[in-house]
């Protein structure tokens, strides 16, 4: 999940009776499956929560370019390099669609970037892990984008029009991301050398648990999640999506001949899904707090890119203003 633990400012979810007339009309529209558009009345909590969620999602797309970009100049073939470039470019595009969706709620993109750069806004914990070998690029496509798709497909039906439309566009492109990753791993694991298979095993050993953490801690008792679900900006619980992801992914790992690094993983006939081991949530909270392996490096790279690009942004704006002034004078 690209947006983790989004707060809603809610202490409890109001019933229809407890709402005032505007809130009730709003909730009834959502319950009826009618999309909310930017200029329409909405509760302040809905607006704020969406800005948090969509911007966190956008930041994840943008920061998510960094671990993979590490391998663009090191890709094993020209074809893999072209594919990886296209994928990383897509991530930039996804970030842009989402920033634009957030902007319809009355916040500027510069404000959102400022929140990212100052550390006030979060992005997904997963992008604070390093990409140490080529198999990591395949692993990110297969596992990380796979987990993201789990979350993004239902969000296509979310209640806020611009977010829903951005999700539809993103999901169309995301399938390419997952498949190119799996394809790279098929090459290494089934058609490659024993050393390549070993490299892929090392990679899944490092990425499996962080990928499961992407869905966030169990939110069965969370007021924020209950409120977000009532507003239909969250469709499934974290545990539900995580279970679906595990069930889908285990057979794909078996095909590759990779061992999932979880001794407690086993098929549970009764529930028709896999049981799996306890996730180390201490590690998750440390990464969220800024103490993951690459938090400082990632943020520093973003800030540097923004600062280094200042002359370009200002130069083009000055040029545009000069041209406009000349046109007005003519």
């Amino acid at each position: 999940m690209y947006a983790q633990m989004v707060k809603t400012d809610a202490n409890s979810v109001k019933t229809l009776d407890e709402m005032d007339a505007d809130e009730r009309a709003f909730q009834q529209r959502i319950d009826a499956g009618i999309k909310i558009e930017p200029k329409e009345w909405m509760p302040e909590g809905y607006r704020k929560t969406l800005i948090r969620q969509i911007s966190q999602h956008a930041h994840s797309e943008i920061v998510g370019q960094l671990p993979e970009a590490n391998w663009i100049s090191r890709a094993p073939t020209l074809e893999r390099k072209a594919i990886l470039l296209a994928k990383v470019q897509d991530e930039a595009g996804h970030g842009l669609y989402l920033y634009c969706a957030a902007e319809t709620l009355g916040v500027s993109r510069d404000e959102l970037l400022e929140q990212l750069h100052s550390g006030k806004a979060k992005y997904s914990s997963i992008f604070n892990y390093p990409t140490l070998n080529w198999a990591d690029v395949g692993m990110i496509g297969w596992l990380v984008d796979g987990a993201a798709i789990m979350n993004q497909v239902p969000l296509q039906r979310c209640s806020f029009g611009p977010y829903s439309r951005a999700m539809i566009r993103i999901c169309k492109e995301e399938s390419f991301h997952q498949r190119q990753g799996y394809d790279a791993l098929v090459k290494m694991c089934r058609q490659g050398t024993p050393e390549q298979l070993e490299m892929a095993q090392d990679s899944i050993n490092r990425w499996w648990w962080p990928a499961l953490m992407m869905f966030g801690p169990s939110d069965a008792d969370s007021v924020h999640s209950a409120q977000s679900m009532a507003w239909k900006i969250k469709i499934n619980s974290n545990d539900e999506l995580r279970q679906k992801f595990v069930d889908q992914t285990v057979p794909q790992a078996e095909y590759l001949g990779l061992k999932i690094p979880d001794p407690d993983l086993k098929w549970n006939e009764e529930k028709g899904g896999y049981d799996f081991g306890e996730i180390d949530w201490t590690e998750f909270y440390e990464v969220i707090k800024g103490n993951g392996p690459c938090n400082k490096e990632r943020l520093a790279a973003r800030v540097k890119a923004w600062d280094d690009g200042a002359w370009y942004r200002e130069g083009l704006l000055a040029h545009a203003r000069k041209k406009n002034a000349a046109k007005a004078a003519a």
Binding site: Q89, G93, E103, R109, A320, N324
Partner: peptide
């Protein structure tokens, strides 16, 4: 199809090509 930031119309079209017509 969506929106984007650009300094002028010409750059907006260039960016729109990259952001909205990659496929």
């Amino acid at each position: 199809v969506g929106s984007l930031h650009a300094p002028d119309a010409e750059k907006a079209i260039m960016a729109a090509r990259d952001v909205y017509t990659r496929r």
